[in-house]
Design a protein around this nucleic acid. Sequence first.
RNA 1: GACCCCGUAGCUCAGCUGGAUAGAGCACUUGCCUUCUAAGCAAGUGGUCGCAGGUUCGAAUCCUGCCGGGGUCGCCA
Length: 619
Amino acid sequence: MARAQVRQACDRRLHRRHDRSFRPNRTQATLQGPMNVFAEFHAALAKSLDALVAEGKLQAGLDLSRAVVEPPRDAAHGDLSTNAALVLAKAARTKPRDVAQLLADKLALDPRVAAVEIAGPGFVNLRLKQSVWRDIARAILMLGERYGDGAMGDGKAVNVEYVSANPTGPMHVGHCRGAVVGDALAALLEKTGHTVTREYYINDAGAQVDQLARSVHHRYREALGENPGPVPEGLYPGDYLKPVAEALARELGPKYRAAPEAEWLPVFRTRAVAEMMALIRDDLKALGVEHKVFTSEKRDLVEHGRVEEAVERLKLRDLVYTGVLEPPKGMKPDDWEPRPQLLFRATQFGDDVDRPLAKSDGAWTYFAADMAYHLDKYRRGFVRLIDVWGADHGGYVKRVDAAVKALSEGRATLEVKLCQMVNLLDKGEPVKMSKRAGTFVTLRDVVNEVGADVVRFVMLTRKPDQHLDFDFAKVREQSKDNPVFYVQYAHARHRSALRLAAREFEGLDASEAALAKADLDRLADAEEIALLRLLSSYPRMLEAAAEAGEPHRVAFWLYDLASAFHQLWSRGNAEPAMRFVVPGDRETTLARLALVRAVGVTIASGLRLLGVAPAEELR
RNA sequence: GACCCCGUAGCUCAGCUGGAUAGAGCACUUGCCUUCUAAGCAAGUGGUCGCAGGUUCGAAUCCUGCCGGGGUCGCCA
């Protein structure tokens, strides 16, 4: 089975790197554009620190890299909070609250700051002028769905390989999650300023594709009117091979009916793989997933001698030898017998054992070819490689990581995102699937049943390292219990408000440009400001999600935004004066529509990132 | 035996890569439709963050060791 099966998490070691978006270096704030308040205030903090050093109030060389500027959990603590004083105190040999006072005095001079407080052990809490939040609404209206675009990636190339399902049949549900997570991750990286290449590795050189060819041959005989009996054990029994066989029967006639396998196998294999890849690409397209680069193990690597090249490269560094592996302990040794094998010294790069490169029949192992593929990516200029695999490939991570390190001489890094299993349910009951009986649920079935948008969103409603229940009954449900509809409903409601306003006010110009010019000082209610504040955290959330490689955060954030929006909407029930559309008050209506539209734009931006089309209406 | 992942409210899960009284949905109790779609909103009940140590001004979060669940473990891919 391919790599794309399903569930779980990522190798934390690999993400522990460097900065939280808005943290240390000052150039970042400006690169990120004008919209990341948190980044801006981190920069302001650095400036304040410099000033204090210049005045001799603090010593030079203090490290702000561990300081964060974040929204406090409790709104009573203001709009922004920083732990800078706590982080600096020890090195500055000053009490945290004293450092906090120094910083507070400086930050108070910032024109955007309304009030500064020192709280607890030495947090500095800032309350910003409301104009800061209103400016955010204007900026969102002007930027449209570009809101949240960041420069964090600095245009650097990232290679994201995902799906890579074996070309032996249509995609099944298990492949969905990796496909969606990989695709959303790629989009997230693009959104944050990386240059992303989406890739798919076609595993078409092993024994499985020979079995595929034999399966097609069996069906071919059927198509010619023979009765070869049931599909033999070990072959692929699915009906999806029948059309392929029938086409071959039409095109080739009976000439391979009784021919020796060696004659027809390559022909059938090539054709079958091509057909399966066409099937898979169709399935992916139905899900809205499109890869740019497809690499064939057989055609692009094995037949071009790329595997030999990779092995040679390792040999030059004395990283290959012939040896005998120990049997794994604790497992029944069954048919184990010691054999000399061609091995890669993976242990020198953090793996637990050295790994075999060749099978006893002389063919390369899957690993050897995959190694060559990763070398190929590196040679094409990628030093940052991300692979999205199913959790059942967890045991494979270290060796590929070792290979990447060895082959790139430490210049390339590999991050593997493992996705846990998806349990397919209907009304809480497991959907029974039998591969043997050919009754497994295909990706296409699921997409046809509930739609690509729902599949995509639901696949992101759990962090990748958590198993996920996909319940047909539940995802069709149209209630707040279903996050997809909850978020879509918020977007549809924002449209509804705009439509209503157009009916209420003749000739109302509710274009973004017009709304940006509205008198936003009319947005003064605490809940309105809170909503603006939430909108302001979008770029920050995107960068954190990109940094962690966790696109599910976007889905959760959108749910929160939708919730805040529904809340404000409902205020209008009890307090008609709080409705978005206030009959007879054009100015207030425009101001509120500016907020409403900013919410809509942001939801659309987030959904688009996840590959989900925002709904105009829910009927 | 080894490696990887998970363990947070009765249930399903978040928790912004170490911050201030641990959050949401479901479920249960109770309010809100002559109302911009109530497909929604509000309030209440409910938690020794698996256990035990450690690091830290500060731990659900980092480290170590246990316990429980899942995954993987030579010539499959």
